[in-house]
Write a protein that binds this DNA or RNA. Structure first.
Length: 480
RNA sequence: GCACCCAUCGUCUAGCCCGGUCCAGGACACUGCCUUUUCACGGCGGCGACAGGGGUUCGAAUCCCCUUGGGUGUACCA
């Protein structure tokens, strides 16, 4: 039997980091076993759902390279539609069927009655389970009459009074004691079905074989187990992945800062880095590899390597992963990406050799793609050195003016656009031998005069990339 | 409250299922040194953990129990 997994977001907001992670796990698993990845939209909460968010979430998923095989935009006639709001008739049919079989019943209790019962239960220190009169079969006839007369009622599922056991791929054997939940609503009085019910009906109808989702659904699963049983449906495998938490160990939410994927997208994180980092939050590579491309996971991704405990989301490590992916990228790809950035006119005008040398040098220092143009401006094109304390100190050494005037003279003699590494070496040699400068005053002196910085990348790579005209202007500035 | 889940360095984790090879390995962060004296790169080090208590065993991070701590659920939300 072929594996079918699904990611089922509610379009009530942007794609969340945690959602992206579960989507990724589902995607990776489907790829690893040659299965099908289904995208289903859980929009039964009409008040909070918004089709705009559906679009945005799919967009973010796409950005991460998480593409679904089936979904609202790629329907398989056998399973469509993929939006729960378009499946209400299906749920209604199943719900009515359960009522007919006596596995569910109409409930006419008012909010007030329910509230009172809840409060009473709380006062007595027990769980608020449904105890309205309508659960009693002797009211079935009356209920049916009132429904026929057009009255509205919720449909409640008759929860069996027995314990259930789930064999979860990450949590192991989970036992739900009897009476854990009371008779719960599966269809609201407004006719709209409820998550726990839709979810099971859909997973069943869509032939979902593996349910990989967040641990926050673990307690709910007992309700779903009951419905599977009532439906006579085959149980899928479950894998309840641990939750993502913030620095205060609370479930990751907006107040922890940037928690939606689009924010990272806007900050130019690489999608591959995002996937890489998220994947490692709760799953480990069999060889403890920590930098990889998700497309290289096909052979090794499985459901056996999930961590059972919650993982803290740490942007610092994400940044590191991102810079590792920048370094891993080919120079050709880097050049392409850099040229897409704004304010890269100078870069674009240079020779292919120059570009190659430039990205080769800068990728060591860049964490993000936009860092490249920034570094070009700061390190290569900046004509007016910023007088930092460190630079002032270098200029105050008695040997520095000698170096500065010598280098200025030499630079003025240069006819080419760039100097060569050999020329640079010759100058340094001269300063060392003829001007008799050595040690820190030599190296930092030369660096200071040429770059206007007290530190930075290796001069023999940096200077040949810097236009002679810029070098000249820097030294004019420094001579003042 | 009740139910369920979880518990290895500050953080992500390996090891746990199938006890000894673990006075616990890797990565981020922090930090020291080195790289023909710069350096944001790189190399080599350092710091740093089996929550506590009982058991089982010749032997426990690994198995069992309790305690503690944390999380989740307890909706006519998903």
């Amino acid at each position: 039997m072929t594996v079918r997994v699904r990611f089922a977001p509610s379009p009530t907001g942007y794609l969340h980091i945690g959602g992206a992670r579960t989507a990724l796990y589902n995607y990776l698993y489907s790829k690893a076993v040659g299965g099908t990845f289904v995208l289903r939209i859980e929009d039964t909460d009409l008040e909070r759902s918004n089709s705009e968010y559906e679009k945005l979430q799919i967009d973010d998923l796409k950005w991460m390279g998480i593409v679904h095989d089936e979904g609202p935009d790629k329907p398989n006639p056998k399973y469509a539609p993929y939006r729960q709001s378009e499946r209400t008739e299906i749920y209604k049919k199943y719900a009515l069927d359960l009522v007919e079989k006596g596995l569910a019943f109409y409930d006419f209790c008012t909010d007030e009655e329910l509230e009172a019962s809840k409060e009473k239960a709380a006062a007595e220190g027990r769980d608020p389970i449904y105890e309205g009169k309508w659960k009693n079969p002797e009211f079935n006839q009356e209920a049916l009459q009132r429904i026929k007369a057009g009255e509205k009622a919720a449909i409640r599922f008759r929860a069996p009074k027995k314990s259930y056991t789930l064999n979860d791929k990450v949590k192991g054997e989970v036992v739900y004691p009897a009476n854990m939940v009371g008779d719960f609503v599966i269809v609201r009085s407004n006719g709209l079905p409820v998550y726990n019910f839709c979810c099971v009906v859909d997973d069943h109808l869509m032939d979902i074989t593996h349910v990989i989702r967040g641990e926050d659904h673990l307690n709910n699963t007992v309700r779903q187990l009951m419905i599977y049983e009532a439906l006579g449906a085959k149980l899928p495998e479950f894998a309840h992945v641990s939750l993502l938490i913030g620095h205060d160990r609370q479930k990751l939410s907006k107040r922890h800062g940037a928690t939606s994927v689009n924010l990272y997208r806007n900050e130019h994180y690489l999608p591959e880095a995002m996937c890489n980092y998220l994947c490692l939050l709760g799953w480990s590579h069999p060889t403890e590899k920590d930098i990889f491309d998700k497309n290289d996971l096909n052979e090794v991704f499985n459901l056996e390597r999930f961590s059972a405990s919650a993982a803290m989301y740490d942007v610092e490590k994400l940044k590191w992963v991102n810079s590792e992916h920048v370094k891993k990228m080919s120079n050709a790809d880097l050049i392409t990406l850099v040229e897409k950035e704004p304010e890269t006119d100078f870069f674009k005008k240079q020779t292919p050799e120059w570009k190659l040398a430039c990205v080769e040098l800068l990728k060591k220092y860049a964490q993000f793609i936009p860092d490249f143009p920034k570094l070009v401006n700061e390190l290569i094109l900046n004509e007016h050195p910023h007088l930092t304390d460190a630079l002032k100190e270098i200029l105050s050494w008695e040997t520095t003016p000698k170096i500065l005037s010598f280098l200025s003279d030499e630079i003025n003699k240069v006819q080419t656009t760039f100097v060569t590494e050999a020329e640079l070496n010759a100058w340094t040699e001269f300063v060392k031998k003829d001007l008799a400068v050595k040690g820190k005053p030599l190296f930092q002196g030369v660096r200071g005069c040429l770059t206007g910085h007290d530190h930075g990348p290796d001069l023999k790579f940096l200077i040949p990339l810097t236009p002679v005209s810029v070098l000249k202007n820097r030294m004019i500035d420094l001579s003042k």
